[in-house]
């Protein structure tokens, strides 16, 4: 019984995160201005990181934790660089 609840909640979490990623991609494709697209990219990064963590729980492997850690770091650097670009027009001054 509890195994079935666990399995269904993992399926629910994966579906929720995939729908969230689709909504973020929708906002990134039609966002009116550049800052909306940058924020949508940041949201997409966070959602994919959480999706990989749920996938790691589902398969019981630690490699997905490392993948999600790398995704989180790359997302931080990418968003900071893009925000800097929006502010100044160049990344490295």
């Amino acid at each position: 019984m509890s195994q079935m609840i666990l399995s269904w909640s993992m399926m629910f979490a994966q579906v929720c995160l995939v729908v969230a990623m689709a909504l973020a991609a929708l906002r990134m494709s039609r966002g009116p201005r550049a800052q909306d697209r940058v924020l949508a990219l940041d949201t997409l990064y966070v959602n994919s990181m959480l999706l990989l963590m749920v996938f790691g729980i589902r398969t019981g492997k630690v490699i997905y934790f490392e993948a999600s850690l790398v995704i989180g770091m790359l997302g931080f650097v990418a968003t900071v660089a893009l925000a800097k670009f929006l502010m100044r027009g160049e990344v490295i001054e």
Binding site: W8, F12, A13, L17, A20, T43
Partner: peptide, 22 residues
């Protein structure tokens, strides 16, 4: 199993709600 399910549903549901708001 129940605790893991609870936290998974809470986390994923709140993420979805945040993205809908976005």
């Amino acid at each position: 199993a129940l605790a893991v399910s609870f936290f998974l549903v809470i986390g994923a549901g709140l993420t979805l709600i945040g993205t809908i708001g976005f």
